[in-house]
Design a protein around this nucleic acid. Structure first.
Lengths: 220, 220
DNA sequence: GCGCCAAGAATGGCATACCATTTTCGCTCT
DNA sequence: AGAGCGAAAATGGTATGCCATTCTTGGCGC
C-alpha cells in the first residue's frame, strides 16, 4: 500500500486519521472490514501508537467501531442508521440554509447559482459523476455559508458517514429529474431570500432523497 | 488526587475519558487549564498511552483542545461559541421534541409532566439547585424519547460543552418566572400532541435562555 | 464423523523508553 | 539595566516491548 502523504507539518496521528477517513469514506475499506493494528501500521509505515490514536478519533466520529480486545472495524451503516442520520442531516442542513439565506452575500448566492447551472449541464449530459460532485459541493457550500462553525463541523461529520450511501444512491436514482427540479426550487428561494421557503424546500428535498434507502433493501 | 473508579471491565481509556469528561463538565478543571500528560498520568495512576488516547477522544468531542507540541488544554468557550453551539442545540432539541411528540407513549408524557411539576415545586421553593437538575433531566428525557440515537448522541455532546455555562446561567437568571411559564407551554403542547407547537415553543424557550449570555459579558 | 477442548498463534491493551520540539531561565554583551 | 541568545529542562510525539485476552486449529473422545 502507498504511504501516508499529507500536509507536512501536521502530527502523524492527523495524517493517519485523514488517510483512513478518506479511504473509509471513499469505500476503499468496506464496512465490517477489520482494521488490525499491526498490519495497518506496517502498511502505513508508522508505529501502532499513532495508529491507535487515529482509530480512537475515527471511532468518536462514528466511522469505525472499536470492541474491547477485538479491535477496530469499519462501521456498518444499517438501514435504520441511514434513516436516523439522514434525518439529523436534513435538520442541520435546513437550519444552515436558513442562516445562509440571511447571512450570505449576493456574490455568494451568485456563485451558488453558477454551480447550480454547472450541475444542470451535467444533468442534461447524463454525467452522473460530475453531477454528484457538484451536488455535494453545493450542499456543502450552503452549509459553509451559514457561518456557524459548529453546525458546519457536525454537518461534515454526518455527511461523511453517509457519503458511501449517498454515492450509491446517486448511481441508481430514477427520480433524477425530480431531484433536479427540487434543486431549482431551492436556488430560487435562496435568490429570493425567502428564509422559511429555503428551509422547507431543502428539508423536502433531503427527506425524499433518503427515504427510499432508509426503507429499502440492505445497502451492501 | 483520587484514583480512577469506573465500571470495572471497561478499557482504561474509557475510564480515563469518562473521568476527565466528568471533571471538565463539572468545572473542576477550569477552561484554559493545561492538562500535562505526565503529571495527569501519575495523578490518575495510569501511563501516558491511555491518557493520550482519552485526550484525543475528548478533543474530538470538543471538550479539550490539543495543539501540536504544546499539549492539551480544557477548551475555552467564547461568547461566540456559546451562541453557535446554543443555536445548534436548540435546532436539535426542536427536532427531537417533534419526534417525541409523535412517538412517545402517554406514559412517557405523563412522566414528563410529573417531572415538570416536581420542578415547579422547586421553583416555588426557590430551590435553584434541584430546579436545575430537574430541568436538565426533562430536556434530556424529551430528547431521549425521540428514539433517534444519532440525535441523542449529538445533543448529549453539545449539551456537555454548554453545561458549565448553563449552570452559571441558572444561578443568576432573573427571568426565572418567564422560563417557568415557557416550560408550562411546552408541556401543554406536548400533552396536546401538537407537534408544530412543541417545536416552536421549545425553540423559543432555548433561544431566550442563551441569547443573553451569547451577547453578554465574558463567561469566565 | 462431529463436536468439544486445549494449546499455540494472533491481536489488542498498556507501560516504558527514546527522540523532537518548545519553553524557560540565566548569562552575556551592548 | 535591558535585550538577546543559548543551553538545559520540560513536554509532547513516536516507537517498541511485554502482558492479557481472544481467536484458531488440531487432536481426542464420544
Amino acid at each position: 500500500m502507498e504511504e501516508v502523504a499529507q500536509s507536512s507539518h501536521a502530527g502523524l496521528v492527523e495524517k493517519v486519521a485523514n488517510y483512513l477517513r478518506e479511504h473509509i469514506v471513499m469505500d476503499h475499506f468496506q464496512p465490517g472490514q477489520r482494521l488490525p493494528e499491526r498490519t495497518l501500521a506496517v502498511e502505513l509505515q508508522v508505529s501502532r501508537t499513532p495508529l491507535r490514536e487515529a482509530l480512537k478519533i475515527l471511532a468518536t466520529e462514528g466511522l469505525v467501531v472499536i470492541s474491547p480486545h477485538r479491535g477496530a472495524v469499519v462501521a456498518e451503516v444499517s438501514p435504520a442508521d441511514i434513516k436516523e442520520k439522514s434525518y439529523v442531516l436534513s435538520v442541520l442542513e435546513q437550519a444552515a440554509a436558513e442562516l445562509t439565506c440571511i447571512n450570505a452575500s449576493d456574490d455568494d448566492i451568485a456563485e451558488l447559482q453558477a454551480l447550480h447551472y454547472e450541475m444542470k449541464a451535467c444533468f442534461l449530459r447524463r454525467d452522473r459523476q460530475n453531477y454528484f460532485r457538484l451536488n455535494q459541493e453545493i450542499h456543502n457550500r450552503i452549509v459553509a455559508l451559514s457561518g456557524n462553525s459548529t453546525l458546519i463541523d457536525m454537518h461534515a461529520n454526518l455527511s461523511r458517514q453517509l457519503y458511501r450511501v449517498r454515492y450509491l444512491s446517486n448511481q441508481k436514482n430514477e427520480k433524477w429529474a425530480t431531484a433536479m427540479e427540487e434543486h431549482e426550487a431551492i436556488m430560487a428561494a435562496l435568490e429570493a431570500r425567502d428564509t422559511e421557503r429555503v428551509g422547507r424546500e431543502l428539508r423536502n428535498h433531503l427527506g425524499k432523497t433518503w427515504v427510499k434507502y432508509a426503507h429499502g433493501e440492505p445497502v451492501e
